[in-house]
């Protein structure tokens, strides 16, 4: 096996901690994007705690890899990772989306150490990532850029402009990861805006395409490594995921795209965290 059991276990535990941090940010009475944050948590854990070059001490280390949350509403999952890296005090998690808070409702590079750009108006993050990739390439930097996209976000026309441009410029230091959870703000993507043949579409645009189960840590690591190894152009990792993953009451439900949990649900959620920890530890 290419990856040691220890590594997989470590990253699985990190992913659980990331989800625990997300829960910390959305106590009952507070509204937050639980669904789309949880669906991409495993990929994010793999990126921040294994694949990406990040400094534990300097969020602006010039040799770092960059991650852009194009689906900016799911920034809770990024805050969860940045807190684990120690970029800010864990106490900030409880103050997310508060006045004067360091953790804004959408990614704000001026407020939060480790946030690389302003995103939130959907469809723009892949273009920003492409610009970074081109700039880094001009500087002959080895740094890579990762863009996290929502599947609902793919309805934005600008995404496809960026998809075309990244191929034109053969931006092999750029990886797009689609959180293909099939659910958007008000219903399923199949019902709201069914984009068919997603794999074929990205391929037709000239990208190196890898389709994975976004909750299988081995598949995630393999895909990220394959993206690094591919030098002909950009790579898209289309990650099949479950919205609200690991929280049964929320899984696959548009309601938890941006919602508050009841006291009971919140209790269940923490029990899920504890149970997952027991399973992975065993």
């Amino acid at each position: 096996m290419k990856y040691s059991q220890e590594l997989i276990k470590e990253l699985q535990l990190k992913a659980i901690q990331v989800r625990a941090n997300i829960l910390e940010m959305i106590p009952p009475g507070k509204v937050g994007h639980l669904g789309g944050s949880s669906s991409i948590a495993d990929v994010m854990a793999a990126l921040y705690f294994h694949t990406m070059k990040v400094s534990k001490t300097d969020p602006k280390d010039p040799t770092r890899d960059r991650l852009i949350m194009s689906k900016g509403h799911a920034v809770l999952v990024q805050y969860a990772c940045l807190a684990e890296l120690g970029y800010f005090d864990r106490g900030e998690l409880g103050k997310v989306k508060t006045f004067n808070g360091m953790l804004q409702g959408h990614p704000d590079m001026d407020r939060t150490p480790g946030i690389e750009a302003v995103t939130g108006s959907l469809g723009q993050g892949l273009s920003v990532s492409l610009g970074m990739a081109l700039g880094l390439r001009l500087d002959k930097s080895a740094s890579r850029v990762y863009a996290i996209l929502g599947d609902g976000e793919l309805a934005e026309g600008q995404i496809w402009e960026a998809v075309m441009a990244a191929r034109v410029f053969r931006a092999s230091n750029l990886t797009a990861i689609v959180d293909w959870n099939g659910v958007q703000a008000t219903s399923t993507t199949a019902e709201i805006f069914p984009i068919e043949n997603l794999v074929e579409k990205w391929k037709a645009f000239g990208w190196n395409v890898i389709e994975i189960d976004g909750h299988d840590m081995v598949q995630v690591l393999e895909a990220l490594d394959a993206a690094k190894a591919y030098t002909e152009g950009p790579t898209a990792i289309l990650a099949h995921t479950v919205k609200g993953k690991c929280f049964p009451f929320a899984e696959g439900k548009a309601k938890y795209h941006n919602a508050s949990m009841t006291e009971d649900e919140y209790k269940v959620a923490w029990e899920c965290i504890a149970e997952m920890r027991r399973e992975v530890e065993a």
Partner: peptide
């Protein structure tokens, strides 16, 4: 030519890509 990016008829992508370039210290 190495510092010139022909972005095609896609102004929206051009503007956001410029943002990314500026984040690496370029002056687009």
């Amino acid at each position: 030519p190495e510092r010139y990016f022909q972005m095609g008829i896609a102004e929206q992508n051009m503007a956001s890509t410029a943002a990314g370039l500026s984040l690496t210290g370029k002056i687009p």
